[in-house]
């Protein structure tokens, strides 16, 4: 591993993300730390997978990440749609996440009532669009 190889990994990752964003891929981060799992994040993940199967969508990518920090709002997800500010949702259950799936992920209308905030925290950035 040299600096060039390190750079190459970084660039190829960014290229990949950029390509996905250009193609309109919607990314959904499910926050699955121990705290998230304990409050039901696995069911949220399964529900999203199930809905994706039912609706036969191919442009949604689920990503499992760690805890987003706000334990009292778990389980949480973040919906990242290209061209729009990412939206963090909290205190979800299977029913709510289904609503978000159709309204926001497929329809593009954020579910305001379940949203915590939009945007990413200060040092975080969406690799590929900055």
């Amino acid at each position: 591993m040299t600096m060039d190889e390190l750079k190459k990994i970084k660039e190829s990752y960014i290229d990949e993300r950029r390509k996905e964003i250009d193609e309109g891929y919607i990314s959904v981060d499910v926050h699955m730390g121990t705290c998230g799992i304990a409050s039901g994040a696995k069911n949220i993940h399964l529900a999203l997978l199930e809905e994706m199967g039912k609706a036969a969508v191919t442009n949604v990518k689920l990503k499992i990440t760690g805890c987003a920090g706000l334990c009292s709002m778990e389980p949480m997800i973040t919906v990242l749609i290209p061209g729009a500010s990412p939206v963090k949702y909290g205190k979800l259950d299977v029913k709510k996440v289904r609503e978000i799936f159709y309204s926001h992920i497929l329809g593009g209308h954020p579910k305001v009532e379940y949203a915590i905030g939009h945007g990413l925290e200060s040092p975080q950035k969406r690799v590929g669009i900055e």
């Binding site: 939206v87 305001v112 939009h118 945007g119």
Partner: peptide
């Protein structure tokens, strides 16, 4: 309801 109602993080 518009996304504008969601507060910035």
């Amino acid at each position: 309801r518009t996304a504008k109602e969601i507060p910035g993080i």
